[in-house]
Design a protein around this nucleic acid. Structure first.
Lengths: 205, 205
DNA sequence: TTTTGTTTGTGTCAAATAGCACAAAAATAG
DNA sequence: CTATTTTTGTGCTATTTGACACAAACAAAA
């Protein structure tokens, strides 16, 4: 096991491995080689071995990796061997969709509240919860102890919302708004603007 | 202007620059320096200059870049100086949300159809269009000449759907399904699984 | 037991990416 | 007109990332 800092690019690949492993595990397979995993995720076997070896010697020569063991290790490393509470900010269509997205379950996340500043939306029922007033968001985040937020707000509101989130103790933001936000270095932001994602591909058309 | 192949990592940053520039242009500002743009997007000025210079000498010493000019150039490079038709596959919550996502407008994209294989959903109205039968998807893609698809289908269906899309002529896929898909090298896939995006951040909590 | 085959973990090298720094160009000020 | 300031484009260098290849470990077969 290596104690030096792990590059972010490696951390970013671990969820991909984890996803493929969990999928494979459902088919009752017990072990997997770096070669096989590589074919599943489109990454070279050597790359996968090196990535995994940053955290320990989890494989066995001649056999490969125990899928169950590796899943446990990856969950532990990524801290998803627990369920994280998540809030959604912005009760538009995308916010609605993410608020009752079934894919968070079993992947370590659970949406606990959704907020909007539009008084017409506040109080509306979305699945099992009601849209809460954004004005009370900060207090709610603190009392719930939430560390993760999903932002589905207009670009014009994103920075202001991000500031409130950070102030309230949020440490990870998944941002669907089409704008960069400025946050302290201890807060992570993942950008997921649909239009930007499409624009990354049109160059190749 | 450099004629050698542009690395994908640079292409991936261009939409970020474009987005910030368009936002800045709305405030009536005419020129911007690499320094200023860098602060907006959180990327070093040198990096931005080098990225942009791959495509030509668009700036002017002492002044910076004409925002309007640079926007036009970036749109041209990214081929978003036109509107691309897009289809959405999977009429779940996420499919719904993306089908009438307003953010595609003015960014080079327009959703023209949404498909699902669930007979109960087929025929339902979503915004201005009806959910179409996935069985007719291939034919519709061909007759519409669509090159870009957004997939919001269950993991179990993703590979099968991707195969149909590729067969029908789709060249870019924005994939929200939590699974890797295998496509020929001439087809681009961008992954945007919400849970995976969150898992990339929990390591740092 | 011995041999053959498989697969990991990692040292070494190669390639890709990013940072630095500065000449040259343009703008501005004196 | 000259000096100063600003800012680009880029050559050079450093760092990061990825590929290769192989000894060592283990499994399986003979």
């Amino acid at each position: 096991m290596n104690n030096k800092k792990i590059p972010e690019i490696i951390i970013g690949r671990l969820p991909i491995y984890l996803r493929a492993l969990q999928h494979t595990a459902e088919n009752g397979i017990k072990t997997i080689s770096s070669q096989e995993l590589g074919e599943l995720v489109g990454i070279s076997a050597a790359q996968i071995r090196k990535d995994i070896s940053q955290f320990g010697e989890f494989g066995k020569q001649g056999t490969g990796y125990s899928i169950e063991f590796l899943i446990n290790k990856l969950c532990e490393i990524l801290k998803v061997n627990q369920t994280w509470d998540v809030i959604v900010v912005g009760a538009g269509d995308l916010g609605h969709a993410l608020a009752h997205y079934q894919g968070f379950k079993d992947r370590g996340f659970r949406v606990v509240a959704i907020f909007d500043n539009n008084k017409n939306k506040v109080g509306q029922t979305i699945g099992s919860f009601k849209v809460e007033d954004a004005a009370e968001m900060s207090e709610r985040i603190r009392s719930l102890g939430v560390k993760i937020a999903v932002m589905t707000v207009p670009a014009s509101a994103a920075q202001e919302v991000a500031d409130v989130l950070v102030q309230a103790g949020i440490r990870s933001i998944l941002n669907y708004a089409p704008v960069n936000v400025n946050v302290p270095s201890y807060v992570k932001v993942q950008y997921s603007d649909p239009a930007t994602n499409l624009q990354k591909m049109t160059y190749y058309l």
